[in-house]
Computed example of a mutant assay.
Amino acid sequence: MTKKRTSLKDIAEALNTSVSTVSRALKDHPDISPALKKQIQEMAFERGYNQKKIPAKNKTNSAKTIGIIVPDMVTYFFSAVISGVENYAKEKGYFVVITNSHDRADQEEKCVNHLLEIGACGVISSIAQETKNFSHFSRLTTQNIPLVFFDRVAETDRISSVGIDNTNIARELTCHFHENGAKRIACLAGPKNLSISHERTAGYLSALIDCNQTVNNAYMVNTMLDADSAEKATNKLLQLPEPPDALLCINDTVAFGAMRAIRNAGLSIPQDIALSGFTNEMHATVVEPPLTSVAQPTEEMGREAAKMLIEQIENGIYKVPRQIVMKSKIVIRSSSVKSEL
């Protein structure tokens, strides 16, 4: 026997409220109290309520639609991944809907809900820097909608993902600083909840040990991923009794913020402080000095994520999740090479 669909009326009766209140709560209307809104949304999720039914004439199109959730659409890294996803999806006859979490957990949840509403048959996502709870992604997997993470990944024991060899490349970058004479190497990592922060910090620490350098907790700083936050974090490092003479940054945006702080302090890059980023943005080649960074196979990353997603859409979700780790390489530029050792 076919299971009856949960309706707005069912949820309203269960919670002793009106159908209009349930409808507005599911649309995140500000007139509904946060407590009642949460109660309604949780019940809707538990009962598998789909807020927006797909009209019959659109079912064919929705069956060939995949969604992407990215933290931003400004940086080259994410736009290049999107390009890779779109190119592969087009080859396979799929249409791509792009959503932007703006690196906010609440907006990321709205992106998931929107993609559910439009009937996306699979989702590719990179975690927002604010996200610490991943329950909103379970709304996809509990409905057997394939999900693939890239770059900033989570729950790899059950979700497939595509990333790079973060730990190894961070280790190589740190060793590069050491080989160029740096003795006090610091690390500007991102938020503690992000996988890339853990992995790149692990590589940094491994290199310090391998290079017989002292591990100083004061040189390990977690910062948000914007330039202003990075500038403030760098200013604190520069105020230490023994400030660092090299700085490994989790991405290029963070490195640009650090660069601004170093210059404002009247210091020289790389003579006083060597510097590196991690995402090889376009601006890395035009700042002065040009920024050492890590070239990642961004378009290939997008293609692999799309390939895994579409395989699962067409053949069923993998019984064992797959983790693809792609090679990256350091691009050495003037910011990390001192002219005199």
Rank of each mutant, 00 (worst) to 15 (best):
residue 71 P to L: 00
residue 58 N to W: 11
residue 119 G to R: 00
residue 208 L to H: 12
residue 295 A to L: 13
residue 26 L to D: 03
residue 11 I to D: 00
residue 294 V to E: 03
residue 266 G to S: 06
residue 22 V to L: 05
residue 1 M to N: 02
residue 209 I to H: 11
residue 204 Y to N: 07
residue 61 N to C: 01
residue 186 A to R: 08
residue 296 Q to G: 10
residue 182 A to Q: 10
residue 145 I to T: 01
residue 71 P to M: 04
residue 299 E to W: 05
residue 166 N to S: 12
residue 80 A to D: 15
residue 239 Q to D: 15
residue 68 I to V: 15
residue 2 T to I: 06
residue 172 E to Q: 14
residue 238 L to I: 04
residue 104 R to A: 10
residue 292 T to P: 06
residue 262 I to Q: 04
residue 91 E to N: 14
residue 145 I to H: 02
residue 130 E to H: 07
residue 141 T to Y: 03
residue 326 M to C: 07
residue 185 I to L: 05
residue 236 K to R: 14
residue 162 V to L: 02
residue 90 K to Q: 14
residue 16 N to C: 06
residue 113 N to R: 10
residue 113 N to M: 04
residue 304 E to Y: 13
residue 18 S to F: 01
residue 162 V to I: 15
residue 46 E to P: 00
residue 292 T to H: 09
residue 273 I to F: 03
residue 139 R to N: 10
residue 264 N to T: 09
residue 82 I to W: 03
residue 130 E to W: 01
residue 203 G to P: 07
residue 216 N to I: 14
residue 134 F to Q: 00
residue 202 A to T: 11
residue 148 V to Q: 05
residue 299 E to P: 05
residue 285 T to Y: 09
residue 318 Y to F: 15
residue 201 T to L: 13
residue 60 T to F: 05
residue 147 L to M: 07
residue 35 A to L: 11
residue 177 F to V: 09
